[in-house]
Each structure stands twice: as C-alpha cells, then as structure tokens.
Amino acid sequence: MGLEMESRPSDLGYIERVWRSRSEGVSEMTSVATSHWELVFWERRGEARAAVLGPEAQASRAPVPGDAVFFGISFALGTSMPHIPVSRLVGGNAAIPDVTRRSLWLKGTAWHVPGFDNAEAFVLRMVREGIVDLDPTVAAVLGGAAPDVSDRTLQRRFVAATGQTQGAIRQIHRARQAAVLIQEGMPAPEVVHRLGYFDQPHLARSLKRYVGRTATQLSSPNAAEPLSLLYKTCPWVPA
C-alpha cells in the first residue's frame, strides 16, 4: 500500500533521471521541491494522460490518482522545450492532449509513448526534431567550468533555461541532499556540518520549506504520507 517508486540515472546528458511508480491506497503525497522539469505519463482504469511538469520552488501537497501507473523523464538542468518556456511552468504544468496508451502528439506529430527502458531514444528524437534544447553555457557551468559570459548574462540564461536562479537551485539541491542523508541515518548535526548549514535551526527551516518534513519525520517515514522522488546526486558544483 502507498506509492511504490523505482528510478535510474541516465548516461544521456539531456536526462537527469528516469522513474516509474504505482499508487495503491494513497490519495495525496508531499511533492518535494525540485529544479528539474519532467515529462510524465500515467494510466488509470484504461485512461492514459501525459503532462509537462515544471520545477517546484518549495514543497507542497499534491493529489495522487489512486490505483494508477506512472512513468516520468526528469530532464537535466539547462534543457528546455523552446515552445513551452520553463519559466512559465514553475509550480505548474502543461497537459499534453490526445494521449492514448500507445501514442501521443507533440507539435503536430504522432509519437509512440516511451517507457522506462527506452526513454533515451525518445528524448534523442525530441532533440533531433527541435522539441528539446540544451543551453551549453548553463550545462558547462553546472559541470564546474568557468562561465564565458558576465554574471548578469549567466543569471539571465539560468532563469531562461531552468526557471530559477542559481541560488534557488543550490538551496533546493542542498535540502534534497540533506533529506537523503537523514533518511540513510546520518545525525542532523553531521548533516549540518557536511552540507554547510549554519546550525540545526537553519537545516530545519530548509527541510520544512523544500522537503515538507522535519528531520524526525524523515528518520521514520510514514508510508501513508509518501514523498515524491528523492535520490542521491553529485555535490553541487557552482559557487
């Protein structure tokens, strides 16, 4: 009972992670803040749907269709769909019309609905047909390279490509890392030290805002009140 979830990383630079889940006996979850936008498909009682979900600036409660199967592609920071600007999707979504269990329409063309094992091929086609783009400067800076543009230009490009500032992305990333470490059993004082929080109250405020849980709640999760996807990532690079 609850929200069963499985995910995997991807070697494709356009994809952050691929995931799938199934809901049973749960109607609501806490949606953890995220800097990534996603393409999500779900099926319930023979009805198929799909949507582009934007980044989430803070944790929130979200409804979960009961007895449904979900599949999602979380896109890497710096990727975008030029015809649906990410900046307009922060905290929201855009439904994809005319979806069936096997097909969907994107920019006037029929596509096969992808799955957990062939997400990369689907995204590569999106790239070839100009539906997904990647800002090379943003991607390079995220990888640790020195920016070749001014700070103001870089910030503008970050917002255009991700819908958020570098500072907001950094805070969300750190809170998610903290939540994973606490779930794995690391004491809060050690998390504070490792991730550079000022003190435990600072950590507590961050967790409440971006994860929607206290350290105690993360240490003893309740299956009846599930969280959205949390996973280990590489440390944040840009200063």
Rank of each mutant, 00 (worst) to 15 (best):
G72P: 08
L154G: 01
Y231T: 05
V127S: 01
V26M: 13
E28F: 04
L227P: 09
R88L: 14
F75T: 08
P55T: 07
N222R: 15
L142E: 00
R17D: 04
T233V: 13
R20T: 10
D117M: 11
S27N: 04
T153S: 07
S35Y: 04
L142G: 03
R125G: 08
E4P: 01
Q164K: 09
D98I: 02
H83V: 05
N118Q: 08
D11Q: 13
P82K: 03
F71Y: 11
W37N: 09
R205D: 08
I73C: 06
S23H: 09
N118V: 06
A239C: 02
G25A: 06
A160N: 09
V99F: 10
D148Y: 04
P189A: 10
M29Y: 11
H83M: 10
H173Y: 12
R125M: 11
G72M: 10
I182F: 02
P9H: 08
D133M: 05
G25S: 06
R152C: 01
A94Q: 02
D117S: 14
H112K: 13
P221N: 04
F75I: 01
S103A: 12
E47P: 00
T79Y: 08
I169S: 11
V86K: 08
D133Q: 13
V149A: 10
A57F: 08
H193Q: 14
E225L: 09
R8N: 03
G143R: 12
N222K: 13
A160M: 09
S23P: 10
G92A: 13
R209C: 06
A139M: 02
R176H: 08
A76L: 08
S206H: 04
P147K: 08
A140F: 07
D117L: 14
V191D: 00
F41K: 01
R157Y: 07
Q217W: 07
G78C: 10
F198N: 00
Y197F: 15
E38A: 13
A59L: 10
L53V: 14
W37P: 02
T214F: 12
G196M: 06
V64A: 08
L104D: 05
I172F: 05
L53D: 01
G91Q: 12
S60A: 12
L203F: 10
T100C: 05
P221H: 06
L181H: 03
V52G: 00
R17T: 14
E47L: 14
A110Q: 14
M29A: 15
Y231W: 15
A51S: 13
S7M: 04
K107D: 06
R49Y: 05
A48S: 15
I169T: 09
S10H: 04
V127C: 03
A110W: 12
I15C: 10
F70A: 04
